[in-house]
Design a protein around this nucleic acid. Structure first.
Lengths: 257, 257
DNA sequence: TCGTTATTTAGTAAAACTTACAAAATAAAG
DNA sequence: CTTTATTTTGTAAGTTTTACTAAATAACGA
């Protein structure tokens, strides 16, 4: 989006997008036992917040969320879930609106009458990606886009702290009911690697021996004949996902304890 | 809402309510092993659908949902949960809009330009009440308000069939994680009565002996010294909810199997 | 008054599942 | 060829769930 397109979006965006409703995405990034969260520095409020956007009048909510994540990270087709809608009247703090700042940034007057500066209800989605595979983009709304370690997040603008908390909570609940790992692990991985993934996302230790047994019992994994070399230790077997069972589990759910 | 107020709502409602966003409520009613759903006959589309409404610009989503349920049923302070937000572009079928019908019903022209007739994203809530304690109201939007047996629902307008399905699904999942029964059972009830409540909501039989034991083990129930007379049979003990544990369980969740 | 009957409720054995841990297997380094 | 760290199998103990039995009991009617 260039300068002219951005100005048109500000002035006439409500013709193409649904006004008063936005989407915010908590995009979690995993790689190598590290869990991060994608944040943008918002040009209008000069603080960190979740990436978000508006819904095209022709899109479903899921498609809009998917597009927003794709535009920010370049990643497509990932685990994406709606978790809650936020609509407290004070969530956006429109009272703090600064007409001068708006003019400096947009070159437009009467910002407080703009469709963007009005009561907005936001649908929260969360997603999980492999952050090493992403290519981050900033846009006209943001001056920075960056991954933050989940344990060292800055204070976020609006009600986004609450959003992250609830996204994390839902993610951890859903980990016990849906399989995860596809797109987050290499095509061939060891039992230790998939256990580390779950441990990092859940934020707790799992039994070295019992946890992988459960995944195997659920039929989610194919044992391969290859092994991985990890130095002066017994070489662990490689596994891949049984894509049939995995997709079935995504649809029908699983029970993991 | 009288005729004049209704016309003002149609013409200027967007000043007080958030446009493009609505709330729809799946209000389940339980009494005596019967499960019903509250439906209204929509004046504008002449079919059955879920009761709904708009969000005042000063309200939270929960407050709006609570108000909508109260206006329909007279009941306050019940189990109310947001479950999902629906935003498919074709969910409202605005293409079917009938200008003539609109004029007959509202006496207004240019209906298709009205704020009510535009892309609307709806936040779904579900609630559970005792239908014998409700006093139903119709309003300017509905010609009828009625309880339907859950197994004999008519085809609903818009995407409300899908909403009911997802509300029911969420309700049944949450039954295992939150206590239920307060406001749905008399202050003093037998173990058979609370089991029947869970059986009806879950749509399946539970073990006569084991299920109540779980509730007791969770500390949710107080055993009273009184008994209930049920004719030529052993008189069952009466129980009441341990309100402290019950409220704690509402906050922190429980694990019921 | 006393069986009969239907229901509540305590009790328990079997089964299933979870958890904790021991020990064997093994790859590579020294 | 011993040492070391890790994977992986196996299993015993502990816990929870499930299925079922039998005792308790309230009222009815013979």
């Amino acid at each position: 989006m260039n300068e002219a397109e951005f100005r048109d979006f500000i002035q006439n965006g409500y013709l193409h997008y649904v006004p008063h409703v936005s989407i915010d995405c908590a995009i979690f990034g995993y790689h190598d036992q590290q869990l991060k969260l994608l944040l943008i520095r918002h040009r209008f409020v000069d603080g960190w917040c979740l990436p978000g956007g508006y819904i095209l009048r022709t899109e479903t909510l899921g498609q809009a969320a998917s597009r927003i994540v794709r535009e920010r990270t370049g990643v497509d087709n990932l685990f994406l879930q709606q978790f809650k809608t936020f609509g407290d009247p004070d969530r956006a703090q429109c009272s703090k609106f600064d007409e001068e700042r708006w003019f400096r940034l947009t070159g437009l007057r009467d910002g407080s009458k703009n469709w963007l500066i009005d009561h907005t209800i936001s649908v929260g989605f969360y997603a999980i990606t492999d952050f090493s595979k992403t290519v981050l983009h900033t846009d006209m709304v943001s001056t920075e886009t960056a991954w933050f370690d989940i344990d060292h997040l800055p204070k976020l603008e609006f009600d986004h702290d609450q959003m992250v908390k609830e996204a994390m909570h839902t993610l951890r609940l859903q980990l016990y009911h849906y399989p995860i790992g596809y797109n987050l692990l290499p095509a061939k991985f060891t039992l230790t690697e998939i256990r580390a993934l779950y441990e990092t996302l859940l934020g707790k230790k799992l039994d070295v021996s019992n946890f992988p047994k459960k995944l195997i019992a659920l039929g989610l994994l194919n044992k391969l004949s290859e092994k991985r070399s990890i130095g002066a230790h017994r070489s662990p077997h490689l596994y891949s996902f049984n894509k049939t069972r995995y997709n079935q589990a995504l649809k029908e759910g699983i029970v993991l304890s």
